[in-house]
Nucleic acid binder design. Sequence first.
DNA 1: CCATATAGTCAGGCTACTTGCCCACTGTGT
DNA 2: ACACAGTGGGCAAGTAGCCTGACTATATGG
Lengths: 148, 148
Amino acid sequence: MQDDEHLGSAFAVLRVTTQLLDGIQQGLARRGFDDVRPMHGFAFVRISAGDATVVDLADYLGVTKQAAGQLVEQLAQRGYLTRKPHPHDGRARLLALTPRGHACTRGAEAAAAETVRAWETTLGREDFDALSATLATLVVPGRLRPLW
Amino acid sequence: MQDDEHLGSAFAVLRVTTQLLDGIQQGLARRGFDDVRPMHGFAFVRISAGDATVVDLADYLGVTKQAAGQLVEQLAQRGYLTRKPHPHDGRARLLALTPRGHACTRGAEAAAAETVRAWETTLGREDFDALSATLATLVVPGRLRPLW
DNA sequence: CCATATAGTCAGGCTACTTGCCCACTGTGT
DNA sequence: ACACAGTGGGCAAGTAGCCTGACTATATGG
């Protein structure tokens, strides 16, 4: 196999990712969540996992704790999350999604699933399952958020 | 197939894309190009295709012509491209890569191919070819650059 | 020749980050 | 009991990359 064929796959994966991100963004907008960016979605993932503080979130997102603090402040103002005092640490504040935050998360998941289901329709069940399995094989531990 | 399995594929494609972008970025840095961002790489793709002006580039990248102009100015200052008068239009300036610009483009392509070759190694030739074909099937015309 | 459209730049502003600094609280060792 | 290094979080200021709006110069169709 030649490099230009490898390159073709590289471009393909970029375009497919673009489809996914656009699909999520548009799906969220259709559901009335037009004030969230993908970064917020990645934050929701970490917060949903529980026991998240601002510093935890910063590590997860790969940004400074100040940036994470600003992001949390915005999401709190917009009613997506609340900050509660940490039960065992007077310095820390536990992050938790509000009902609106949970609704937004479910909306993002639904929009993502829609886009992926479209792939399944295009490919057929068999090829899609193969794709899913193959992608799962390629996943290595590391950052989720593909930002640049 | 359930939604959470679709969701798993969505996360997988995000993580795989993150690998690719990080691989390109790091590969370029190893080759001495530490002052270019992925956006610049997408610009190189369009400029390499020939007959590119600032406005063409703006359309291709999905940004305003002002933003494209700033990007071109930076790349020109850093020696990656030159602006020549357009042969048939006194307003326009044709963009062209310098030798350094071509070298950077080749470096990015090599780094991308390296990352994709690693996938081929992990998967084996047969599964990799299937993945490539499947991804090619999913590609639809649209923006290349997955920004958010 | 004039009206309108287009290529590009200049100026200013917004937003999402950054670094540097500070304070409050924790917990560990002596 | 207490000093002290470490950590969670916020404040302030700076930066980078994008935006909108306004402008000049050139092109093009009546």
